[in-house]
C-alpha cells in the first residue's frame, strides 16, 4: 500500500511539474508585459503555442542527421527526470535517493550537451554561435552551481536534496553568511542557465547576442514543442530548487497525508508565482549585457560560491 502511495506521489509530482511549467513561462511573460504597461498575452498562451506547434508539420533542414531528430527527446527526458527529482510539494519522493543534487546538475549538463550538439548539426553559423556561447556560459555556471552544492552539503552534511530541504526547514539552520552568499550565487546561476536577461534574451530572434534561441533556430513543429517544453521545465526546476532550499515551508513530509500534500501543492504554486513575478521584475529592471560581460557576471557567482564553501571549511557556524 505504501509503495502504491509513494508511486502515486512520484507520478503526481512528474505530471505536476509538466503541467505547471508552461504556465510559469506564461506568468513571467504576462508580468513583464504588465510592468511595461502592455496588456500581454494570456497566461495560458504557452499551452496554446505548444498545441499549435505539435499540430504543425516539421520542416527539417536537408542535412539534419538522426541526432537532430533524437536530441529533443533526450533533452526533454533528462530535464524532466531532473525536475522530477526536486522536491516540489513533498520531500518523501520515492526515487529522490536515486540522484543527489550533483546528479541533478549533471542531468541538466547532459541536456545541454545534446542541445549544443543539435545546434551544430545543421551546420549553420547561428547554430554554431549559439552552441559555442552556451558552453562558454555553462563552463562558468556549472562550477558555480557545484560550489553552491558544496556549501549546502557542508552545512547539512548531505548532497541529497530531500535531506537538505528537511534541514533547512528545521530550527537547526539559523542565519548564516554562507547561505546568503549561496542564495545570491544560485540566483545568478539560475538566470544564466535559463537564458534570461541580462545573460540572454528569450524574446529575440534576429540578434547576434542570442544564445539559446540561436541553437534551436532550425527546429520546428513537434521538435520545437518538445524543446520549448524542456526549456520551460528547466525554468520551473530552478525556481523549485531555490524554493525548496531557501523557502522550504509547506513541504509535505515523507509520511504526510492528503491534506498536507494539498497544502504542499498550494504553497508550491504560490512560491512559483512569487518566483515568476520576481523574475519578471528583475528582467524589466535590467538591460541585456554584452556577451563578453557575461563571464564577469557569472564569475561573480563562482567567486561567491567559492567564498561560501571556504567559509564552511573554516567555521561550523558561518
Amino acid at each position: 500500500m505504501a509503495l502504491i502511495r509513494d508511486l502515486a506521489v512520484q507520478f503526481a509530482e512528474m505530471l505536476l511539474v509538466l503541467a505547471l511549467a508552461p504556465g510559469l513561462v506564461g506568468l513571467v511573460r504576462k508580468a513583464k508585459a504588465r510592468l511595461t504597461r502592455r496588456r500581454g498575452a494570456s497566461i495560458i498562451q504557452p499551452y496554446r503555442d505548444l498545441l499549435r506547434l505539435i499540430r504543425k508539420e516539421v520542416v527539417l533542414a536537408e542535412n539534419a542527421s538522426w541526432l537532430f531528430r533524437v536530441a529533443p527527446y533526450v533533452i526533454f527526458a533528462a530535464t524532466w527526470v531532473a525536475a522530477a527529482l526536486v522536491p516540489t510539494f513533498a520531500t518523501g519522493l520515492m526515487f529522490s535517493w536515486s540522484a543527489d543534487l550533483i546528479a541533478i546538475i549533471a542531468l541538466l549538463a547532459s541536456a545541454r550537451f545534446f542541445l549544443a550538439l543539435a545546434g551544430m548539426d545543421v551546420g549553420t553559423s547561428f547554430g554554431g554561435i549559439g552552441a559555442s556561447r552556451e558552453v562558454m556560459i555553462a563552463s562558468l555556471a556549472e562550477p558555480a552551481m557545484l560550489m553552491i552544492v558544496f556549501t549546502l552539503a557542508l552545512i547539512v552534511g548531505s548532497t541529497q536534496l530531500a535531506t537538505i530541504a528537511g534541514f533547512m526547514n528545521s530550527a537547526a539552520v539559523g542565519l548564516r553568511v554562507s547561505l546568503g552568499l549561496a542564495l545570491f550565487a544560485l540566483i545568478i546561476v539560475a538566470i544564466a542557465e535559463n537564458a534570461r536577461i541580462p545573460v540572454d534574451n528569450p524574446a529575440t530572434h534576429l540578434e547576434l547576442t542570442m544564445v539559446h534561441e540561436a541553437m534551436v533556430l532550425e527546429y520546428s513543429g513537434r521538435h520545437l514543442a518538445v524543446i520549448e517544453l524542456a526549456a520551460a521545465l528547466k525554468l520551473l526546476l530552478y525556481v523549485s530548487l531555490i524554493a525548496c532550499i531557501f523557502a522550504p515551508w509547506g513541504l509535505a513530509g515523507p509520511e504526510a497525508g492528503l491534506a498536507a500534500a494539498l497544502i504542499g501543492v498550494l504553497t508550491y504554486v504560490a512560491k512559483l508565482a512569487v518566483g515568476g513575478v520576481l523574475l519578471a521584475v528583475f528582467e524589466t529592471a535590467i538591460a541585456k549585457m554584452r556577451v563578453f560581460r557575461v563571464p564577469q557576471f557569472i564569475g561573480a557567482a563562482l567567486m561567491l560560491g567559492l567564498l561560501a564553501t571556504l567559509l564552511r571549511f573554516f567555521s561550523g557556524s558561518l
Binding site: R55, V58, V59, L60, A61, E62, Y73, S220
Partner: peptide, 18 residues
C-alpha cells in the same frame, strides 16, 4: 505521446539560418 497526438508531417527543406 508525440507520435500519437502530434502531426506526422515532415518536409525536408534548405536550412533556415534566420
Amino acid at each position: 505521446a508525440i507520435h500519437r497526438f502530434a502531426s506526422h508531417a515532415l518536409r525536408r527543406s534548405a536550412a533556415w539560418d534566420c
